[in-house]
Design a protein around this nucleic acid. Structure first.
Lengths: 191, 191, 191, 191
DNA sequence: GATGAATGAGCATTCATTCAT
DNA sequence: TATGAATGAATGCTCATTCAT
């Protein structure tokens, strides 16, 4: 019986991690991070409770990993490349993707939203997110600068806030919120 | 000889209730509804845990009372009168108040925001809020109708979402968020 | 405002006590002594919790009083006179009354039965009951002695046990238990 | 390398369950089901409170298991075989065993008796017991039918009640109750 | 790598009892 | 006499985490 090679182990580990994070995403989103129990996550991941602690040091560590994942996922679907210069066309695309993508994975986004306002968790969240967000925000500020705004940084923040508000309402009431109207409105105002 | 009069008891009860709700507001806002313990609320209110249950049937009932309070407070500070017709001047006022008032009582608003995305709690929240919100939303839709928008209801929702997004960012980063820019932007776009 | 006279107070006290005991009987019987709360007893008696402690030192004291009451009630309905000599006719009457009276106030008897097997309560119960029971048991033993039994005391205890068993089953299943058959059986065997 | 095998775990589980039930039996019997605390049961079982909930979903579930156990134990010691026809000899044996067996494990029986009259618990108890009791009661009714009684079912119930009464007194006062006299009396009357 | 038995601190809630009025 | 606000210890139960295997 030859033992698994290190490489094989690495693959197994990655798979297991993904499995756990996927389970955690659903359970946390459904019940809220604090109410959700590690047992339930383990059960959903079809592994033992003990094994979870082999992969993540604590429940909080699972959350942290989830948040990092979320960010990477978001950057991917928005096709962010922090080195390009944003054109009007590209800006429109960002708006469209931002509004419609959350609807494809509402669990992920609801979880994220629910965390932002949980003071104790938010700090952890921001510690992970902010450094990663910076370049993207800079990029958008540059776009607004090109548009001739006095205070492009401020404009970028107003835009971000507006977009977040619309995403939020889309998530909370996906069937009734007028996403299309919102999209057109955003494009008219900001592009 | 005689015990406390009914009136005296009524006063005590009202005071205590306010005391408990105030404590709960802070503790829930700081730690999130689920993480916060009844013990901590009681300690902050400087009463015994048992007494809390003399005033509220459960932790959830405290939350419910808090939410009702919040709504009434919001309607007051926005000086809402659902029978008036909203003028441009009045609409400007609503925007200004909406942006700056949360900053005066950030705890209240953070709590509210944290609840919206807590799936299990959100239902409870919406059951209390929606019927109360309806008339105000209608009033704003009428304003947009007067402005000649094709779909005033949709516009109202986009406006609400935008405003919520801006309030949210104000709350999360009060020192850096450009509230003044946001206000001017909202007035320019919607009034 | 003249104060109440001592005599008037005494009457009020007796009434109140009866009121409390009646409430306690029902609440204890319905929920069991331990599960029943003093609050509920007070509510049923339509007095304040505090006042209960004016009349009884503790929940246990209420129970004790209830048991004493129960015993007196039982002795009354059985028309016990410890000085008479029991005749066959009288013995038949005791059997009949013993079987059918519990059915008229099942609450009282169920409570009593539920207490007998609650070790902690049973001691208290027996401390109150046994001294009061003694003479009546003696009286019955005398009856069996007259019947020529070798060990009349033993016979009395077997009879008591039999009677208790039948009472118990009557109470537990009043609609189906063949009380009439049981009565006839007892009379045939013991008289 | 590998964790405990399923078989090993099964053994541990069975042992622990027995340990908990044994502890619960004593604690419940001594203090009554309602008064007894889960903590005390755990302490007596020399395990943590938490572990109890690994084995039983609730305090009530422990009780239920105890009752089922009790019944099985009773059927065993009475050597019940619901398919046999009861002879006089066998009937005598049932009487003897019924009187003397409770004395060997008084805790078990006292617990059982204490539950019968605890209205809320009794339902649970009967739901478990009645379906199991039925065939045995039928068997005894058949015996009385064979004896030529008019209403063998009624006779069976009178007999059961008598037996219960005698068991009850035996348990409550094992040192003084004339068990031998009772046994002879029962045999004389019913066999 | 993997299990699940085991822990102990913590939770929301209840309740007998006290006491200022 | 009468009230009910107030207490604090106790209750049934949950759960993140540890650890022997």
């Amino acid at each position: 019986m030859s033992p698994r090679t290190t490489a094989q182990n690495e693959i197994i580990r990655e798979e297991r991690k993904a499995q756990i994070l996927d389970a955690a995403l659903h359970v946390f989103a459904e019940e809220g991070y604090h109410s959700a129990s590690v047992s339930k996550v383990a059960k959903r991941a079809e592994i033992s409770k003990g094994l979870m602690y082999n992969y993540f040091q604590s429940k909080e560590e699972v959350l942290r990993a989830l948040v990092v994942d979320l960010f990477e996922y978001a950057m991917n679907v928005l096709k962010v490349d922090v080195n390009e210069t944003i054109t009007d066309e590209r800006f429109k695309e960002i708006i469209e993707l931002s509004i419609f993508i959350p609807l494809e994975e509402p669990q992920r986004w609801k979880l994220y939203m629910s965390l932002v306002f949980q003071q104790d968790v938010a700090e952890l969240l921001m510690a992970e997110m902010l450094p990663r967000m910076g370049p993207f925000m800079k990029q958008m500020a540059d776009y607004f600068e090109g548009k001739g705004y006095d205070d492009p940084m401020a404009m970028m923040r107003v835009f971000s806030a507006t977009l977040d508000g619309i995403q939020m309402h889309c998530l909370l009431d996906p069937t009734n919120f007028p996403a299309e109207t919102a999209k057109e409105y955003l494009i008219k105002q900001f592009v």
